[in-house]
Amino acid sequence: MNDEFDKKNAVIRFFHVTKRYGSKNALFDITLDICENDFVFISGPSGAGKSTLLKLLYLGEPVSEGEIIVDGMNLKRINHRAIPLLRRKFGIIFQDFKLIPSKSAYENISLVLEAQGIKRSLIKKKVRSLLRNVGIDDKEKCYPPSLSGGEQQRVALARAIAGNPKIILADEPTGSLDAESAAKIFDLLKECRQNGATVLIATHDTELIRKTGGKVILLDQGRLDVMTVIPKLE
């Protein structure tokens, strides 16, 4: 174990977490801490359990055994009504984007803010500024099916950061993107970290990890294989 992971200000804590689908272990006995403002890669081959680990954090799936604590909330004891509050701590970029096809780019992003009860006038300002930041301010009225993969990914990123989340979860955020779009998305994710967010990225793209550098949690067949820090490739 690397000392870099043993900080006291952990925002995410896993205690002997196991996730089973039927009799198959998707994750087995995972114990780890992720600290505030960390930029962490969760890596490993396909089927290693990267996406499952992220899903457990926002209660996309329930834990089979063990405990997870997110920003002081024990997910095992969380009340049904508190789940939206837990999810608002996260900004999630899904592998398949999960944009609502019947809503425009603007509406997909504003949804998060509306759900938090923010005033319409403020939402308008904030969404426009987000669209500008991710470089698709001209696509405000476009619907997801008419956007390219890179553009959809940017809308997803803008939606993820709209509510100023404490933690950003990105599941293969560059999986379907060309190198230029992928680099742009990574730059934006780093910017989020600079603004104080903790960023967790599930990816199997080791090349990208080497280029970017950062803390890495390596999973193999559901088990925690390595936790290390990879320096940025100069």
């Binding site: 009504r81 939206p84 509050l85 608002r88 999630i92 944009l99 609502i100 019947s102 809503k103």
Partner: peptide, 16 residues
């Protein structure tokens, strides 16, 4: 249902 699921995932409350 997909829309509702996404809304839930981004933190929308049941009431919303």
């Amino acid at each position: 249902r997909d829309e509702v699921e996404i809304m839930k995932l981004v933190g929308a409350s049941d009431r919303y």
